[in-house]
Computed example of a mutant assay.
Amino acid sequence: MRIGLITRDPGHPLLAGTTALLAPGHEVETLDAETATDVPGPLADVYLLKARTPRALSLARALERRGAPVLNSAAATALCQDRTAMAERARRAGLPFAATRTWPTLARLAAGAEPPWPVVVKSRHSRKDDLVARVDDAARLRELAAAFPREPVVVQEFAPNSGWDHKLWAIGDRLFAALRRSELAPGEQGPAQPLDPGSLPEGWSALVHRVGEVFALDVYGVDVIDDGDGAPLIVDINAFPGVRGQSGAPEALAALTLARAGTGSAGRRLAADAVGGT
């Protein structure tokens, strides 16, 4: 089979590990979406959409129009780039997503009525190095507005928590988990601490899989905080995250890739054989 990687970083640990598993029996090729506008000739059997730039989404849509399976789809990936649309979809589906309000610009937010402090201010459009900040008073809000006056933003009330985020990832049916110091907490964030998914509070694993169903995602991350009583609150959803440092993640992605490229039970058997029955 031929597998296409839509990414500018084929050396990313998850992609590199997956490629190492697939390459002995399959052809793996990289498409740099920032330079490739089309794919001439025969299509690959499946494409992995790791990049999330406008050019990458445009390329993925073009491949889908030609009938190629893309994992995750361009539509599902784009939905997770818009935090307003993400929150609306989650709340309509009954998911415990943080209440989210949208402002056209950060300057408009700073000039309007003061929200109940503290709040979390995020760029509306999720991207690398976007804005995510805890704001405790109007002075801090004005500082941010001076630095990013035209930035469209969303605002979430700050939910008291332990200062640790649960980073939950799904690759197909496989679930991975870690604890990471919140970027909103004081001090250094530090590395994530691996967490046994079986130790998650009751219902959390099912919640992650429900997110995948609602957002039509195959490879995704869900950022969850504990409200102090064990109830989960979703604060973000990411399409095709890095899933770094998680044992078994490349094997899970390799198996999912071949299953999506194949059809039915034959594809699933091929996937299992290719990664040693994982």
Rank of each mutant, 00 (worst) to 15 (best):
R2H: 13
I3L: 03
I3F: 08
G4T: 03
G11Q: 12
L14A: 08
G17S: 06
T19Y: 03
L21H: 04
H26T: 04
V28H: 09
E29W: 11
E29Q: 12
T37K: 09
V39L: 15
P40A: 13
G41C: 05
V46K: 01
Y47P: 01
L48Y: 08
L48M: 06
L49Y: 10
L49D: 05
A51K: 02
T53M: 07
P54Y: 05
R55K: 15
L57H: 12
L59G: 09
A60F: 07
A60S: 10
E64I: 00
R65G: 04
R66K: 15
A68R: 02
L71I: 14
N72Q: 03
A75W: 12
T77K: 04
A78P: 08
A78D: 14
C80R: 00
R83V: 00
M86G: 09
R89H: 11
A90I: 01
A90W: 01
G94M: 08
A98T: 12
A99S: 12
W103V: 06
W103S: 13
P104K: 01
P104H: 13
L106Q: 12
L109C: 09
A110P: 12
A113P: 14
E114D: 15
W117Q: 06
P118G: 10
V120R: 00
V120L: 03
S123Y: 09
S126N: 11
S126R: 15
K128V: 14
K128F: 14
D130N: 12
L131P: 00
D136F: 04
D136L: 04
A145W: 10
F148M: 01
F148H: 15
P149G: 09
E157A: 14
P160Q: 02
S162G: 13
A170D: 02
G172F: 05
L175W: 09
L175H: 07
A177L: 08
R181V: 01
R181F: 08
S182C: 08
E183I: 01
A185N: 07
G187D: 08
G187V: 07
E188S: 13
A192M: 05
P194C: 08
S199Y: 03
S199C: 10
L200N: 05
P201E: 02
E202W: 10
L207C: 10
H209C: 03
H209T: 11
G212N: 05
E213A: 15
V214M: 04
F215T: 04
F215S: 07
G221I: 02
D226V: 00
D227N: 12
P232V: 02
I234R: 01
I237F: 00
N238G: 03
A239P: 02
F240Y: 15
P241Y: 04
P241R: 01
V243N: 01
G248A: 09
E251G: 14
E251I: 01
L256K: 03
L258T: 07
L258Q: 07
G262Q: 04
T263V: 13
S265H: 13
S265M: 09
A266W: 14
D273V: 12
D273L: 14
A274W: 10
A274N: 08
V275Y: 10
V275F: 12
T278F: 15
